[in-house]
Design a binder for these strands. Structure first.
Lengths: 222, 222, 222, 222
DNA sequence: CATGAATGAGCGTTCATTCAT
DNA sequence: TATGAATGAACGCTCATTCAT
């Protein structure tokens, strides 16, 4: 039998199908990630049910296990995906700036914007950072520390340029700033009370972090 | 089987036990709180088992339900108890100071000391603040906000005395400071890496919060 | 407080309770074993559901896990219990005999009686021997081989007394006899067709195993 | 996307594939049977997964359902196929013999050889005979009894020729012999311990079954 | 009050089977 | 026919809570 036409067009077939399937698979994976982000944010990791995520993603429960190993794997994926996205967009924005003062302003502003826009994201970071098993934490913190590491790097650059105080420990300052930002956005999600706008909040935090809260810094308590 | 002797002496037993109960009750409640604090800190709220707490407290599982309505009620009690204690000790310390600058130093220092000394406490606050059902959160935040409210009050006092910048929003600043402190202590517990001492950390945070990280505050980015 | 009466009668109390609890626990454990034997026999290990066993034992599903680690542990316990019982009763009967010929008759007869009387037992042995994971099999076969080992021992005794042929391998003969007995009782359970009585069957097997099926053993095929 | 080329050549594809199907169908069916035999033997019916069989047969999971109705149907087919093969080869061998003594020797020897050579076969018979639902059992036993029926027939022939004892029940004897053979081969597969060779085993079983284990059959226990 | 055995609702996960391509 | 992604029913097991003693 001459198999030539078969093989030739089989190539086409495979090609077209791969186009479709790539999209399909991507879509389903993404759909589950998006759904899980929403559900985890709303109910927390432990209270969230696999069936909630499945329903939200409009797939069957079993389908989730075609894309993830287990419930925790979903959380991990959601977290890494969200962190990846924010690291990426942050670095893109920062590449446009060279002044470490401006860079911190950009970091602070975009973090707050991101958290405000995507409340799920804020929640999932909260959950991931505090809700899960310590054993696995270290690995993830390494992953996550890419993000906070950006702050430390900005500060180091500023110190080299003589803009930031050299007695400041960058690794401590990065926690101070991240903690401040995180707590502020936590409250946005947790409480129903009205709060300051993103701009106002960003300005205050920038100002506090850069110049402190003292009216007259030269006049410290004795 | 003749049950008479059993029942007869059971009466004795009950009587003797009742004698002990006045003092015991207090002790049991406390013992459970202490045990729960330890267990929640170690395993997290959802991963902690009632039987873990019971074992740690050396009581029977059922006994816990004589003192608490349900698992969540234990967490709430633990949280409130811990917050009560820290609010109390903080206010006692602050009552000895009048300079708002000194007062912030005291607050920062004692918070870090408390979290370092009692890692369980830090964990439980983390858990309580991020791990539990939103519906109930508002109530507790009100309860908890007594503590962060202290910061806001100090700042307001400082503003009235012209020490702190009047453009700073005290309710925002309290979150910024609490967030910074909380994140720093979270990392102490979460990671095994070595980190700065309490003193060093306190000094850095005090300095950052009061005067900012700029070397020359007058020379802001254009 | 004088604790003497308390402690004295507490001893009574503990004693009485231990009597009750020993019985209770024993009863529940036994109830589950009995129920599981019935259910496994009826449905097989894999088709049997924990809830079936619980229902049969009139306990809650969860109760089963107070007495057994997992489903397989139940099967193992059932098997060991049944084997223990039959080994025990068999050895009791055999201790009354000294003639190895009689002993084999006793073994064969009591095995068939036991299987006929307790069809569940026959089934559970079948299941256990063929239905479960090979990895664990060796351990259990060691346990089970106590029973078939009885046959080998009888044969060895007979060989020493010059009653049984010395060219017979006891370890092979024990499998031959056990296999024959087992297959016969398997069919009793599996098929609905009428079959020979226990006595008739026992006599036939005794006769076949001892003297073979040849009319004239001296006249073997050339 | 223009789907025209895809659809056009899909028609080709289907056409070419249809050409292959006559021969392929046979092959696939056989491939699946062979794969299933292997997998069932290795893991047992319940532990075996359809996907295991599919992988072993190098077909897609769904393909299996083009040839079999369900998982149990596969087992049934495997069993019948294996039994068919062994019945066929056994009868071929037996047709060369006329002496019922020789015939039993042939049956015993070839059964052990077959089980030793094809451990899968032994396992599948074990599984089929003991692992599956009773409801369906009778049908299959009828099917399977073709094989054990051979033993009964040999014995009946021997009885008619005055070679085998006329008091022996052929239907019982067939179970005794099959049970013995089956148990011996079960142990070959189940345990890792060394065991007798096929020849040695066959000789022992032949000898036991024909002449019994007594040294002097005339000297029965009183 | 104290106990801890018992309960049973509830969930994560598996896998035989289906079906669109 | 062939594929394998998708389905969803079903089950083993856990653990907060109850209650008889």
């Amino acid at each position: 039998m001459n198999e030539w036409p078969f093989m030739f067009f089989h190539a086409f077939l495979v090609y077209f199908q791969s186009l479709l399937q790539g999209m399909k698979a991507e879509n389903k994976h993404t759909k589950i990630i998006v759904a899980a982000t929403k559900v985890f944010a709303k109910k927390g990791f432990f209270t969230a049910r696999i069936s909630d995520i499945a329903k939200e993603a409009k797939v069957a429960d079993g389908t989730i296990y075609l894309y993830f190993n287990n419930k925790y794997d979903i959380l991990l994926s959601v977290f890494e995906e969200e962190v990846r996205k924010i690291v990426e967009s942050t670095e893109k924005l920062l590449s446009l700036e060279s002044d470490p003062r401006k860079m911190l302003e950009v970091f602070i502003t975009q973090h707050l914007i991101a958290m405000k826009k995507n409340k799920n994201l804020a929640e999932v970071i909260q959950i991931e950072l505090r809700q899960t098993n310590k054993v696995i934490k270290d690995y993830r913190d390494n992953k996550f520390s890419e993000y906070t590491g950006i702050i430390a790097n900005i500060i180091r650059q500023g110190q080299e340029l003589g803009i930031y105080r050299s007695d400041i420990q960058p690794d401590l300052a990065k926690r101070v700033l991240f903690g401040a930002l995180d707590e502020v956005s936590r409250v946005w999600n947790a409480s129903l009370e009205t709060h300051y706008t993103v701009d106002e909040t960003a300005n205050q935090i920038i100002s506090m972090f850069l110049t402190g809260i003292l009216l007259d810094p030269d006049n410290l308590s004795e």
